[in-house]
């Protein structure tokens, strides 16, 4: 498969009043192959959205270059041709005309892309069906739930049948069921041959969907490759895994004060508390922390292979959102 996107030393700075320029994207380089789902991972402020905006021609880079479908993203002579072959889905509530119905929104954007009228009407129906909004097609968007709006965002981004689709945190703020349906939709779109660039900070989503990815932190690429390769990048690290009956909040305070410990995560699994963390200096001894966790009812304690999330936290330096 050929490279459909080529990014070289792409940098974007923003002027901030009475402050030094803020570097949102700092000399990143990567390639995306035709038909793959490529992930841009990173915490908030890592430069994911800025990268998407540059690659979708909505923002000029400060330096560096990028080619999408063979077009230079800054070439004004060809930018309109490129725009007709790509599209962007942004997460969140904005980006639609609330006082227009779902169908009117799709027709409006189809007209901007110059889709022939007969084709437009058929495609709008197909897209509404694809995103499960056929029954709501003539309802104003202002009466839509967040999940419905997000599905309409996806339909809007497909009106021009783009070859490259940028999905900027498409499942942010959605409930698990809707998120799953959107992930299924993304997989279907990929199966239909579209190249998809997905930004997310949900690791399970990246693991489930992405063929390859880059991890961004403070505007720089700190990791790249397949899920397996990224995990390999932190293979020198084992992760302590402790399952407790009660919330080990007090024990976590002890861990947080230890500068050698990184990537602390606790989540509830099947009514129990699953805590994971790793050590900067090498393989940790899980039993060194047994005492601190004992009051919370330890069920299991041991070492695990790092997950993508562990690798992500290690690579991004445990940046919190």
């Amino acid at each position: 498969m050929s490279d459909i996107i080529e990014v070289r030393d792409l940098t974007r700075k923003f002027s901030v009043r009475r402050s030094p320029d803020k570097i949102a994207v700092d000399g990143i380089s990567f390639d995306v192959k035709e038909g793959e789902i490529f992930g841009l991972l990173g915490p908030n402020g890592a430069g994911k959205t800025t990268t998407i905006k540059m690659l979708s021609t909505l923002l000029y880079p400060s330096s560096g270059s990028a080619k999408v479908l063979g077009y230079d993203i800054t070439d004004e002579r060809t930018v309109m041709d490129l725009r007709r072959r790509i599209n962007v889905v942004s997460g969140g509530e904005r980006g639609l005309y609330y006082r227009l119905t779902a169908r009117q929104n799709l027709k409006f954007f189809s007209d901007l892309y110059g889709i022939p009228k007969n084709e437009r009407d058929i495609r709008c129906d197909e897209l509404l069906e694809l995103v499960g909004l056929t029954r709501a097609s003539d309802i104003r968007v202002e009466d839509f739930s967040r999940g419905m709006k997000q599905r309409l965002h996806i339909a809007r981004a497909l009106v021009n049948d783009p070859e490259v689709l940028y999905l900027d945190e498409p499942t942010i703020g959605l409930d698990p069921e809707i998120s799953r349906s959107i992930r299924d939709m993304i997989r279907k779109l990929s199966d239909s041959g579209k190249t998809i660039i997905l930004t997310t900070h949900y690791m399970y989503e990246a693991e489930e969907l992405c063929d390859r990815m880059v991890i961004l932190s403070q505007g720089k690429v700190v990791g790249r490759g397949t899920v397996g390769k990224i995990k390999d990048m932190v293979s020198d690290t084992s992760v302590v895994h402790i399952l407790t009956d009660k919330d080990p909040a007090e024990a976590l305070k002890t861990l947080e004060s230890d500068s050698d410990i990184t990537g602390i995560m606790t989540c509830m699994v099947g009514g129990r508390y699953d805590t994971r963390f790793s050590c900067v200096s090498g393989t940790p001894d899980p039993h060194a922390h047994e005492e601190a966790f004992r009051p919370f009812g330890i069920r299991t304690i041991g070492l695990d292979e790092p997950t993508l999330e562990d690798a992500y936290i290690r690579l991004t330096g445990g940046e919190r959102e």
Partner: peptide, 9 residues
């Protein structure tokens, strides 16, 4: 932004 990115002036 979607309007700007739509390939029409």
């Amino acid at each position: 932004e979607p309007m700007l990115g739509s390939g029409t002036r």
